[in-house]
């Protein structure tokens, strides 16, 4: 259990890993918007190429990238099927009884699939695979800091995130210990009906909750003793600086967006 890794962070030490996390969040938002701009074949092709380049730059093994797509595979297939069968058009491709597939439907299905893959892979390349959860939290806290004017508790949310990330491994270890203790007393977690297995979890959850509350109390006291008093007047040890690379990356992605708009206008192929 000591070896568990949080999130999907994959330390390959690429250029993307070294970008300022704030810039990566900004770029990820930009990339998502770009994904929705694409309208014709040229634009989608451009999008697909940009995603492949992103994977290449991140130096993350393809196997891991593919495993990241797996959870959305069902959604992808579903959208594709829906688009394939229900998008009408002029050029009939195939007809059998009540099923009619149009060329337009085919294109639409392909576009949708590309869009979903690019969304998932793009954001995970930029964020989850190349940025640790804690860096991400930190980046969001700093980016959203202006919202404090509107009384949004940005610092408090970030602190909650940090503490959650800090305590997940601790609580997992604790769960293992409790499970072992209950097993030693004859508890059975692996057989029986779903209901009886769910019931077997109660003797784990109750001690876990009790201990979590005790930990929370201890931690609150310890934080008070270390002069914690919310975000007011707090400084940070690490000061984030944008470097040249960050601006280069931003420029590349802005250019991609511009390119996509041009492709929509002057490109060819089926347009949605």
């Amino acid at each position: 259990m000591k070896g568990i890794a949080l999130g999907q962070y994959y330390p390959s030490g690429s250029v993307l890993h070294r970008l300022d996390p704030r810039m990566k969040v900004i770029i990820a938002v930009l990339y998502i918007v770009t994904t929705f701009l694409a309208k014709n074949v040229t634009a989608f092709a451009l999008l697909l190429v940009s995603m492949l380049l992103l994977i290449a730059v991140s130096r993350i093994p393809l196997r891991i990238v593919l495993s990241g797509i797996k959870p959305v595979l069902m959604i992808m297939l579903f959208t594709m099927v829906i688009n394939l069968f229900f998008v009408g058009g002029e050029r009939l491709l195939f007809e059998w009884k009540f099923i009619r597939i149009y060329v337009e439907g085919l294109y639409q299905a392909a576009f949708m699939a590309i869009r979903i893959v690019v969304l998932i892979v793009g954001t995970s390349m930029l964020l989850t695979y190349t940025t640790t959860p804690i860096m991400l939290t930190d980046a969001l806290e700093r980016l959203l800091a202006p919202l404090r004017v509107l009384h949004v508790p940005v610092h408090e949310f970030a602190m909650m995130m940090t503490i959650a990330l800090r305590f997940i491994p601790t609580l997992m270890e604790e769960t293992e210990k409790i499970m072992a203790a209950q097993k030693a007393r004859g508890a059975d977690f692996t057989s029986g009906s779903l209901v009886s297995r769910a019931k077997a979890l109660i003797p784990i959850l109750i001690p876990l909750f009790v201990s979590a509350f005790r930990r929370a109390d201890d931690l609150a006291t310890a934080m008070e003793c270390r002069c914690y008093h919310g975000g007011k007047g707090r400084t940070r040890m690490t000061v984030l600086h944008f470097h040249l690379g960050d601006f280069v990356a931003l420029t590349v992605f802005v250019a991609l967006g511009a390119g996509l708009i041009l492709a929509n206008r002057y490109g060819f192929g089926f347009s949605m």
Binding site: I134, I163, R166, R215, D218, L219, M223
Partner: peptide, 10 residues
């Protein structure tokens, strides 16, 4: 308890 007084992940 050493676990219950550390706040950060690094």
């Amino acid at each position: 308890n050493p676990d219950n007084q550390l706040v950060a992940t690094v």
